[in-house]
């Protein structure tokens, strides 16, 4: 099922609010008049289970020409993070959030999964990508980062279709000279289908890990995690894994109360009927 999820970004929104302060107010009577018209184009459309074109061409941080297909190997899900490197605020937050999560995830980069950061700014160069990568590789300091976390740049004819397939809608704001966009990362299956969206700038390690396990069709993850996943379910509305265990406890609780209640009801009714019928009375 297709869902439209508009993520409003505080920083961008504030920027727009200032920018629009000079402009005449948007035509009154629009259904969602509170939202600046441009922001309405900024959204994330969940293309769950839809394929992305793996033949699109980009350049990696070393300036090498690559196709996306090179990063998709059997059994290895791919995390795609649409950002641009010159972004003053939000993209750095996105990458920092991912970094924080990658630190605590105990799967190995490159061996178990791949991260591909793609710039959606066609003007950006591999040099800038390399700088960005150096920062994050230093911070993460884990084996496999070199091959396992790629920072790509590309041309508009490759970027646009990829972002379209990912459902990632953004607009260029001429006043601010920057992009208005949402923050999210996607998990793609090894055969190139969009599997999960995680929103915001903080990604719960549990959610991301479950996302990776599911996207890999259970190729990665410990047996214990696979058992635990049975109690969790991905909720596309929130982009999080909901704890089914809570539901289990609730159902268990209700069943206990019902069982005990029924027992008590039957027993008390019997007791009071008997009491009315034949009990030695005083008086």
């Amino acid at each position: 099922m297709k869902r439209f999820l508009t993520i409003l970004l505080l920083s961008q929104f504030a920027g727009f609010a200032f920018a629009l302060a000079d402009n005449p107010a948007p035509a009154s009577g629009t259904p969602d008049g509170a939202m600046p018209p441009k922001l309405r184009e900024v959204s994330i459309e969940q293309n769950l289970d839809k394929p992305i074109n793996l033949d699109l061409k980009f350049r990696d941080e070393n300036g090498k020409d690559v196709t996306l297909r090179e990063y998709f190997k059997a059994g290895r899900p791919v995390i795609v993070t649409p950002v641009y490197y010159g972004c003053p605020m939000l993209c750095t937050q996105t990458l920092n959030g991912l970094l924080k999560t990658l630190r605590v995830i105990n799967y190995e980069l490159f061996k178990d999964f791949q991260v591909v950061t793609v710039s959606f700014h066609p003007g950006e160069t591999p040099e800038l990508a390399l700088k960005k990568k150096a920062n994050y590789a230093d911070e993460l300091n884990k084996p496999g980062t070199d091959d396992g976390w790629k920072f790509l740049t590309g041309t508009a004819e490759n970027i646009t279709p990829l972002m379209e397939q990912l459902g990632f809608h953004y607009v260029w704001d001429d006043n601010l000279k920057q992009y208005a966009h949402a923050a999210a990362i996607m998990v793609i299956t090894p055969d190139g289908k969009v599997s999960k969206y995680f929103y915001g700038i903080e990604y719960s390690p549990k959610d991301l890990r479950f996302g990776l396990i599911e996207a890999s069709s259970n190729k990665i993850g410990t047996p214990a995690e696979k058992v635990l996943m049975w109690c969790y379910m991905y909720d596309p509305m929130t982009g999080k894994y909901g704890v089914y265990i809570i539901r289990l406890i609730r159902v268990g609780g209700i069943l206990t109360v019902l069982a005990l209640g029924t027992f008590m009801f039957i027993m008390f009714r019997k007791d009071f009927r008997q009491a009315r019928a034949n009990v030695p009375q005083v008086r």
Partner: peptide, 30 residues
């Protein structure tokens, strides 16, 4: 009867979390 199972399960989940490092209650694991 009604309350004790809940704490038994809760404490067990905390033990599972500590043992297997699975995020149930600890924000570091989500």
């Amino acid at each position: 009867i009604l309350g004790t199972p809940v704490v038994a399960i809760t404490l067990s989940l905390a033990a599972v979390e500590k043992g297997l490092k699975i995020g149930i209650f600890d924000p570091a694991y989500g």
